[in-house]
């Protein structure tokens, strides 16, 4: 048996439904006017500072979505880049967006063009500034490193999924004296960004970025819903630790939550007095 459907793992299915409900309810709350708080994220506050520095120096800004295949992470990265582009458009700062995924490249072209339109500067949009370099990891890395060196970029924004090439980007940017802000969901690359970048956005702060920058009620509501779901996870963990400490790891309640199988397994466990 493998977990390919909700019926294979009832606990996961209920969790997914709960998280979705928490997110949707809080989006509704936000739409109805609830005031929602989001803490400061220094890396995101520094975006404007980085753009300002680029403008003063007259050197370009690079935006790198990493090796992200088109999906949720790529859309979030492009949302952030769209915001950055709107800021850049105000100062006519040159920019380069370098992509390793052709689908992301195609969507990025539209997103950046939209950003310039929304900023009222469609004349500044140059399609050659949004480039697909290569879908091979190190060919992409060498292309990006080369561009950063040749054009001596002043600010580098790296948001998305990164692998081994992350340090190549970050260190090359450091060599040319660029101010660097990185945000990634790739846990293993965080130490490299922390060592080489000025600001690093870790884990789910990456998903909070669009809410932080736009302060849109829907996005803030979604963020609150995520936090409620995380609280549930934390409470489940604490509850599990307490229950396992008091009753032992063979206790029915502990085994129930770890019970593999579908609804029959669940009901049998409950009616039969605990898991196997």
């Amino acid at each position: 048996m493998s977990y390919q459907h909700a019926q294979d793992n009832w606990f996961a299915a209920i969790l997914i439904a709960f998280i979705a409900l928490a997110v949707l309810v809080n989006i509704l709350r936000a739409r109805m006017g609830a005031q929602l708080y989001i803490r400061r994220i220094p890396g995101l506050d520094a975006i404007d500072e980085a753009i300002g520095r680029s403008t003063e120096l007259g050197r370009p800004v690079t935006m790198i979505p990493g090796l992200t295949a088109f999906g949720v992470v790529a859309v979030q990265a492009l949302t952030i880049f769209k915001y950055i582009t709107k800021q850049i458009a105000r100062f006519a700062t040159p920019m380069r967006l370098l992509s390793a995924d052709p689908t992301v490249f195609a969507v990025a072209q539209e997103a950046i063009a939209d950003a310039y339109n929304e900023a009222g500067r469609p004349d500044l949009y140059d399609p050659d500034n949004v480039r697909f370099l290569s879908d091979r990891q190190f060919a992409f890395a060498s292309g990006v490193a080369g561009l950063i060196q040749r054009e001596r970029v002043a600010a580098s924004f790296m948001f998305g999924e990164f692998y081994a090439e992350s340090l190549i980007f970050a260190e090359t940017g450091n060599m040319v004296g660029a101010i660097q802000i990185a945000g990634t969901v790739s846990f293993t690359q965080v130490p490299f960004f922390v060592a080489a970048c000025d600001y690093t956005i870790i884990g789910d702060e990456f998903y909070a970025t669009s809410a932080y920058l736009s302060r849109e009620p829907v996005l803030l509501g979604s963020l609150v819903g995520q936090d409620i779901a995380k609280l549930l996870f934390a409470l489940t963990t604490v509850g599990g630790v307490v229950a396992a400490t008091i009753a032992g790891t063979d206790a029915p309640i502990i085994k129930l939550l770890g019970q593999p199988g579908g609804w029959e397994a669940f009901w049998n466990s409950v009616l039969g007095g605990g898991g196997q």
Partner: peptide, 16 residues
């Protein structure tokens, strides 16, 4: 592997 493919195997392969 050098890429994070093990979560995919964990998620979809048979539990035995």
């Amino acid at each position: 592997t050098p890429s994070g493919t093990v979560p995919i195997w964990i998620s979809y392969s048979p539990k035995n």
